[in-house]
């Protein structure tokens, strides 16, 4: 049996007193799209930079494509593609020049691996003589993805590829990733947008340098066992503060069109509805609801 695409064993990294990564352990299987989900400062980029052999860890070990990140760093670099969080192509080279430059670094040509890149490259080909610095955010992102695929890597590392990108471009980008997965690539991708988690085979929730949970997206939300309700009505801010004062309400927070209520076992929704109506809130709707990734994340952050 082939080894997992990525094996991470107790990786730690400190910056002075700050524990950027605190004993991270997980594996990414062959052909898997694995999502690292967490906010700014969670340690996502630090982990990426360790795995792609740009910086050393302070403890633990890891293998990428079966090779050790310390001893085999040279071989690893030929087998992986990496798209850093910050745009890191040459702004004063054209689209075409950037691609040829990265191809030359890996001793390949665009033509050699055209099949893999074509679906993405075709979208930016009309602008191939434009300087990379003059491209829009969405197009920069596509160019960077092309450059990271040029040498036909086995494992792809994408650090927040969709940050700051609008909802439509984001969903297009995920479609591209799932196409690459079909071609056999293993992908580790990070994102602060929790709604993107459902696109991954498995996800790890990360915060403060620690993994909070690892599972399939469904597995993560199914582990939320507390009774969860959604409440809405006229004057949402008033409803929020009023609901929080109720005894059987463990937590209440805004969640899109409704507020979510994490309730204790003795919670009586009819009683809360009545209480809110007696306090003058109108159009109250209160229903049981299913947890999302963010509900789980919020709960785990509180218990962390």
């Amino acid at each position: 049996m082939r080894q997992d695409a990525i094996e991470i064993n107790g990786i730690s990294k400190n910056y002075g007193a700050l524990k950027a990564l605190d004993g991270i352990t997980f594996n990414v299987g062959r052909g898997e799209v694995f999502g690292l989900i967490g906010p700014d400062g969670a340690g996502k980029s630090t982990l990426f930079r360790i795995l792609v052999t740009l910086i050393d860890s302070d403890g633990g070990s890891a293998k990428v494509d079966g090779m050790d990140i310390l001893n085999d760093y040279h071989s690893i670099r030929n087998k992986i593609g990496y798209m850093p969080g910050k745009f890191s192509l040459y702004p004063d080279l054209t689209v075409e020049e950037n691609i040829n430059f990265f191809a030359a670094l890996f001793h390949v040509t665009l033509e050699q691996n055209y099949d893999l890149i074509a679906p993405i490259y075709k979208q930016i080909e009309p602008f191939k003589t434009r300087r990379a610095g003059k491209l829009s955010g969405g197009m920069k992102q596509k160019l960077a993805l092309c450059c990271s695929l040029i040498h036909k890597p086995d494992v792809l590392f994408l650090d927040e590829p969709t940050t700051g990108v609008d909802a439509v471009s984001r969903s297009e980008f995920w479609d591209m990733l799932l196409e690459l997965q079909k071609k056999g690539l293993s992908i580790l991708v990070s994102t602060p947008y929790m709604d993107e988690a459902s696109k991954c085979n498995r996800i790890a929730l990360i915060n403060g340098g620690k993994i909070l949970d690892i599972n399939t997206p469904d597995g993560i939300v199914n582990n939320f066992k507390e009774p969860l309700y959604a409440v809405s009505g006229t004057n949402m801010y008033g409803i929020l503060t009023a609901t929080r004062q109720e005894k059987e309400v463990v937590d209440c927070y805004p969640f899109g069109a409704a507020h979510h209520i994490v309730a204790s076992e003795n919670f009586n929704p009819e009683f809360l509805k009545q209480t809110l109506e007696e306090r003058g809130f109108k159009n109250i709707e209160l229903n049981k609801t299913k947890a999302g990734i963010e509900d789980v994340f919020i709960k785990l952050m509180h218990t962390q």
Binding site: P39, D40, T163, Y253, P254, F297
Partner: peptide, 24 residues
């Protein structure tokens, strides 16, 4: 202008509560 990009889900909600309060 995109005040909450990259912010964790708990803080993102605290931020919106500040917005609600200012608006009220």
């Amino acid at each position: 202008d995109e005040p909450t990009g990259g912010v964790d889900p708990v803080t993102r909600r605290q931020f919106w509560e500040m917005i609600y309060k200012a608006s009220s």
